[in-house]
Design a protein around this nucleic acid. Structure first.
Length: 595
DNA sequence: TCTTTTAGCGCG
DNA sequence: AAAGCGCGCTAAAAGA
């Protein structure tokens, strides 16, 4: 094994090339898969180094051997799916630096090839490589929320085919497909970053977000009264519901939107729905308790006692993240609502004694990403400000240029600049958005035309790509049927036009949101390698990371975050990218104190 | 009665 | 004239 050199210390590991076989380029490649014949028996294959191969390893043996290989060779690991194998290693406290997740890579490549939605797990990828019919993905069992790729339901691989052998074939095939993309280096970076994100996600689930169950319980008791059996409305909600009913003069269930709408109608107030913002300005005695009920009931249902019991253990919240679970490449979560923790509960997120939480969020990430994507130099100047929207307001409205909007108030300039930018990124046109967007287009034509081209492509049914090659799905057959042919009637025409516009808004936003996801994936990949032990990532939410660290390392952690963002921007947009990506970084004891 | 869909709202 | 993106989760409502 002495012939095998350590892989150069690249933070993401994106430069790894293994086409044509394993160690020949000086990189150790380790493929781990479960034995098809036995449950929880793992195999390790090192291409070009047969002596290092192992078969029939029990989980603890796999962990020990993986730790040894990681220590000796710092290889690029190849897993059928990180979320299946890596938890086995994490339970033995084995951490790996870099990897290639075959399932995530397959998903990215399929999307790039316009085959979104086809099965992407190892068995399907193998069938695809062999030119046979891919079996459907096995997915996850709802019962235990754990991956089932290698459980009793089987891997779906043909009889006698071992996962490591399948993985070797699939890896070679994926390398071939990567090389066929327009920008292989970008796709390589994307897959490396996505795979590293999967490592980070599994580590975060294993480590958990520090969560003081006692504070959460105290808060619930304070807001709702003593804990009652599941299914029973707590005291405070009973009181508020009674007030609502009393104000209407008849029993009204505030949890039932139709009942609320009917009750208001009887009181002579017509509302199209029972949404809080539609009720906010109504003058009726039932409204205040109703709004208070809605807000509290939401918290109780989503993050009440049963959530606390199900998702918090040993003062850690352990959600399951779904890396790349959103078409744009953002993460999703499975159970626990990890990405929707209400701000009111952030007071429960506390660093351990002697530790700190370093909370870092990217300021206005998406408009900055759009700026970098489009290469709009003037907007890049605006983005040199930490408060992009304030600076944008100056650029848009300086010289007293006020467009035809009634009751203009200078104090609204920043808000209006923000509406203009969000309208460009989301396709909004309501209210003042139209004229504001026109002004933005006038001042920053390059940036606005970038998203408008994406929208037009979507309206034509074309796919669009992020900076690193994440690709939007093709619209459905139903969409094509609706928008494709000549319309028989004006109504059909309207419907077709609406469908086209809707898809255009999706692709318009996709190029920005997905490129932002590219950037944060690279950020995560970079940061998790740079963090000084025992500091570790504990939370990630689209444009925000939390690191739990011994207090004395907090400053160093902040510095690594800054550097990782710069590294990510440089890898995506080039070393000379003029766009700043400032971070709000706070070192706090409590998450609630970060803003 | 059981399953699927909808409305509403939390997060970015 | 109106029209902004992406998710997950719960209870109620609708459907089978």
């Amino acid at each position: 094994m002495a012939a095998v050199r350590q892989y150069p210390n690249h933070p993401v590991g994106a430069r790894v090339r293994t086409v044509g076989g394993g160690a020949q380029n000086g990189h150790v490649l380790v493929i781990v898969g479960a034995e098809a014949s036995q449950e929880a028996a793992y195999a390790v294959l090192v291409p070009g180094e047969p002596a290092l191969g192992r078969r029939g390893l029990a989980p603890d043996e796999l962990a020990r051997y993986a730790a040894e290989l990681e220590r000796e060779h710092s290889p690029r690991w190849v897993f059928p799916a990180v979320e299946s194998v890596y938890p086995v290693l994490l339970r033995a406290d084995v951490r790996l630096r870099r990897c290639h997740d075959l399932t995530l890579a397959e998903g990215l490549l399929l999307a790039h090839e316009g085959r979104n939605g086809e099965p992407r797990e190892l068995a399907a990828a193998l069938a695809r490589a062999n030119g046979t019919e891919p079996p459907p993905d096995v997915g996850y069992a709802d019962e235990d929320r754990h991956p089932t790729l290698f459980d009793a339901r089987g891997s779906g691989l043909p009889p006698g085919v071992n996962a490591v052998d399948a993985a070797e074939i699939v890896l070679a095939e994926q390398e071939r497909r990567i090389a066929e993309t327009a920008f292989p280096d970008r796709m390589r970076l994307l897959i490396a970053a996505e795979s590293a994100s999967a490592l980070a996600a599994a580590e975060m689930s294993a480590d958990g977000l520090p969560w003081r169950a006692d504070l959460h319980a105290a808060l619930l008791t304070e807001l709702f009264g003593p804990r009652l059996p599941a299914g029973q409305r707590p005291r405070r909600l009973v009181e508020l519901a009674a007030k609502v009913s009393a104000a209407f003069g008849r029993p009204v269930n505030p949890d039932s939107p139709p009942e609320v709408v009917r009750a208001l109608s009887r009181a002579g107030i017509e509302v199209p729905a029972a949404r809080a913002h539609l009720l906010r300005d109504i003058d009726h005695p039932a409204i205040p308790p109703l709004l208070e009920y809605k807000e509290l009931a939401r918290l109780y249902a989503a993050n009440g006692w049963s959530w606390l019991a199900d998702w918090v253990s040993d003062d850690r919240f352990r959600p399951i993240y779904v890396v790349g679970g959103v078409v744009s490449g953002r993460w999703a979560s499975r159970g626990g609502g990890a990405l929707q923790i209400p701000k009111t509960l952030r007071t429960c997120v506390r660093a351990d004694e002697g530790w700190k939480l370093v909370v870092a969020d990217a300021a206005q990430l998406e408009p900055r990403v759009l700026t970098a994507l489009s290469g709009d130099r003037k907007l890049a100047d605006v983005a040199s400000s930490t408060d992009l929207y304030a600076s944008l307001a100056e650029a848009m409205f300086a010289g007293g240029h006020k467009i035809a909007i009634k009751h203009w108030d200078d104090r609204d300039d920043r808000a209006r600049a923000k509406i203009a930018m969000l309208s460009a990124m989301y396709g909004g046109t309501s209210g003042e958005a139209g004229p504001l967007l026109a002004l933005l287009r006038n001042r920053f034509p390059e940036a606005v035309s970038y998203v408008e081209h994406a929208a037009q492509a979507g309206e034509r049914g074309e796919r669009v790509r992020s900076k690193l090659g994440r690709t939007s799905p093709a619209p459905s057959e139903a969409w094509r049927a609706l928008t494709g042919g000549a319309s028989d009637s004006a109504a059909d025409e309207t419907q077709a036009r609406r469908a086209a516009r809707n898809w255009g808004r999706f692709t318009r936003n996709f190029v920005v949101q997905a490129s932002a996801a590219d950037m944060t994936a690279v950020l995560l990949a970079t940061l998790r390698q740079r963090l000084p032990a025992p500091a570790h990532l504990v939370f990630f939410q689209h444009d925000e990371v939390l690191v739990h660290t011994p207090a004395e390392l907090a400053d160093e952690v902040s510095k690594h975050i800054e550097e990782s963002v710069a590294e990510a921007a440089s890898l995506l947009f080039g070393a000379s990218c003029p766009v700043r990506f400032p971070m709000h970084i706070a070192s706090v004891d409590c998450y609630a104190d970060a803003k």
